[in-house]
């Protein structure tokens, strides 16, 4: 299958603005976009920069804007895109080179919501038991791989990089609704700031973009209601 891949490239040492570069190549329809980009890097242009690691949709390294939608390059097949593919870096974060963006602001927001188990009570003699029903409440939000596909699809985040973003709220949800955790009030305090979860305008791009099918907007609304009625 003959395809044209258009990639938005930026070399900070040579370019003042990003530029589009087209590549023509012959690929198998069942190959993934990541395979295509690897072909380009290995066989056509070794200077192309992008992140990837596991290549199986788990490490969350290769989130990109593919044909106008945030996806993981390792989870999209060429046959589902047609013979013209455009690839851009995810939006709202500074582009370091080509498809690589500075993820630090994203991880700063993640760290801000205290995404770890908090419980100062004396440890019980056995495990801290949890029923399947209690676990089910936050089951979906345990699936986040921190790829930033959600946060960088958010129109609010594009215009206000200080917004904590959907990924952080998802990870706060994972602990706020954990029956064993005691850090809810601290997390809600962080999310109750002006750039916290009230910034969400329910555009649902995050939910559509999540490669793990986490109902992101649903999680944001649940944390909002927790803030109103529990906090």
């Amino acid at each position: 299958m003959q395809i044209t891949v258009k990639i938005k490239r930026f070399d900070p040492e040579a370019d003042t603005r990003p530029r589009w570069v087209e590549y023509q190549l012959d690929v198998d329809p069942t190959e993934r976009v990541l395979d295509v980009i690897n072909h380009i890097k290995w066989e056509l242009d070794g200077s192309l920069a992008f992140r990837r690691s596991c290549a199986h949709g788990i490490c969350g390294s290769d989130a990109m804007l593919i044909n106008g939608v945030n996806r993981l390059a390792c989870k999209v097949l060429v046959q589902d895109l047609g013979n013209r593919i455009t690839v851009e870096p995810i939006r709202g974060l500074e582009v370091k080179k080509d498809l690589i963006v500075d993820m630090e602001p994203f991880f700063d927001s993640y760290r801000a919501v205290l995404p770890y188990f908090i419980n100062d009570e004396p440890p019980p003699p056995t495990e801290r038991l949890q029923s399947p029903e209690e676990r089910a409440v936050f089951d979906e939000t345990t699936k986040c791989i921190l790829c930033a596909a959600c946060t960088t699809s958010c129109p609010v985040f594009w215009t206000n990089g200080s917004y904590v973003g959907p990924a952080s709220i998802v990870n706060a949800h994972r602990f706020i609704f954990d029956s064993r955790d005691r850090g809810t009030l601290e997390r809600l305090e962080v999310l109750n700031q002006s750039n916290g979860l009230w910034r969400c305008r329910t555009a649902y791009n995050c939910t559509e973009a999540c490669p793990r099918d986490i109902p992101v907007t649903q999680a944001i609304e649940e944390v909002r209601r927790a803030m109103l009625f529990r906090g």
Binding site: L65, N67, G68, V69, R91, S153, P155, R201, T202, A203, Y204, N205, T207, E208, T217
Partner: peptide
């Protein structure tokens, strides 16, 4: 243009 779906356009129209 980000190819968002119904939610994105509902948001854009609401703002406009």
């Amino acid at each position: 243009m980000y190819r968002g779906r119904e939610g994105q356009w509902a948001f854009v129209l609401h703002r406009v």
